[in-house]
Simulated scan of single mutants.
Amino acid sequence: MRMLLVTGTGGAGRTTHAAATALAAARRGHKVLLVCGDPIDWLPQQHGLDVRRVDPGAHFRAELLALQEHAAPALDLLGAARLDGEELTELPGSDRYAFLKALREAADADADLAVVDLPPLHDAVALLALPGQLRRYLRRLLPTERQAARALRPMLAQLAGVPMPAEWLYRTAARWDADLATVQQLVDAPGTGVRLVVDPGPAAAAALRAASAGLALHRLPLDAVVANRVLPTASADPWLAALAARQQAHLKELRDTHDALHEVPHTGHDPRTPDELAALGHLPDPAAAPRAEWTVEDRRADEGVLVWRIPLPGAARSDLGLVRRGDELVLTVGRFRHIAPLPSALRRCTVSGAALRDGVLSVRFTPDPGLWPRTP
């Protein structure tokens, strides 16, 4: 199954274009799953198209009630009053976890293509990075080597005089890790791409550069960029003609930033029927975009260093942050952050410099004489 993740700037029409892309693929005979965060109740079920809506409220209530049930003995001991589902309202940020659950369920769907209407750009990148981050937290908080000693926990609890984590906690952590691994595999799969929908205005080029850098930081390929609501250039109305001319200038900046730019004309209103969506069928077909490789160059013979080359198109030098933390490199680009494990050869080196040129970050590593094998 291929997956197309659709995001964009706020109000640019990403939900409309996710629905249009899914409908067009279904009408071409593919089995398509459309996962949407915003309601599109006006889109009825079509042949070959399965529409599922993410419901953060229902997901939050179900997860909290399940946690309350597992922790019932401790809560009863404390005299806590149970919460009812009717009184629960989701907390800020809970929509991300509802999306993760929807992506997990999409992995089991009987479909040729899954189109996912993600939140706006910055939230979307954070969401796609979340499975790896949460798995990292689980490994730190509940290491697998400690989980393996389950039979010894009652004895350890008596010796230490403190309660040990309950069995259900380890089972829950294992289930979460398996679900997160499935989502991460789906996002990292060769057939997965991200499509960006932008409104061709003054902030579009900056948003595209930020998207390119944020996605590249997490090695997510940008499938295509869709410029929405493009005005006709030929107009008798001077005001509309001037507006279209300014829009064309912004479109030129977008084309200079990304060569796979597709323009969608302004229809005068947002599509609200399947036939109106089908009129947008000239949108590009979802394609498997190549993922950029992070390569290590061996320059020890000439310069005495190894260089880790990390493609970061759209990144600015002023937005970059770089910190070595043990066997990991903490990379920051603007509002985005990624913790990347070092390749084995670089773990025996020290960071000796970094430079950003032509959209590629080159991090220089000098071999540590105390750790690097001596040459005969």
Rank of each mutant, 00 (worst) to 15 (best):
V226H: 07
V226Q: 13
A227M: 05
N228G: 04
N228S: 08
N228A: 04
N228Y: 05
P232E: 06
T233V: 03
T233H: 02
T233C: 12
S235V: 00
A236D: 12
A236T: 03
A236V: 01
P238A: 01
P238D: 03
W239D: 12
L240I: 05
L240Q: 15
L240C: 06
A241R: 02
A241D: 09
A241N: 05
A244I: 00
A245H: 10
A245Y: 01
R246E: 06
R246K: 12
Q247Y: 10
Q248G: 05
H250T: 09
H250F: 03
L251A: 14
L251I: 04
K252H: 15
E253Q: 14
L254A: 12
L254E: 15
L254D: 09
L254P: 12
L254W: 06
R255A: 05
R255H: 10
D256I: 01
D256Q: 14
T257H: 10
T257S: 13
H258E: 15
H258R: 03
H258Q: 15
A260H: 08
A260Y: 02
A260T: 10
L261R: 02
L261D: 03
H262G: 14
H262N: 13
V264I: 15
V264Q: 08
P265D: 03
H266C: 12
H266I: 00
H266G: 07
G268K: 00
P271K: 03
P271F: 00
R272M: 05
P274M: 01
P274Q: 06
D275P: 15
E276T: 04
E276Y: 08
A278Y: 05
A278H: 02
A278N: 10
A279W: 13
L280H: 10
G281M: 11
L283V: 08
L283D: 11
L283P: 07
P284D: 10
D285M: 05
A287K: 15
A287E: 15
A287L: 11
A288R: 05
A289K: 04
P290H: 07
R291A: 06
R291I: 03
R291S: 07
W294F: 07
E297N: 06
D298P: 10
R299M: 10
R299Q: 05
R299W: 15
R299P: 12
R299S: 14
R299A: 12
A301R: 04
A301F: 02
E303Y: 00
E303G: 08
E303Q: 07
G304A: 05
V305W: 00
V307H: 11
V307N: 10
R309D: 11
P311D: 04
P311G: 06
P311S: 08
L312E: 08
P313H: 02
P313E: 12
A315V: 00
R317C: 09
S318A: 13
D319V: 00
G321M: 02
G321K: 13
G321H: 02
G321R: 03
L322C: 01
V323Y: 13
V323T: 06
V323P: 11
R325F: 14
G326Q: 08
G326H: 06
D327K: 11
D327T: 08
E328H: 12
L329Q: 11
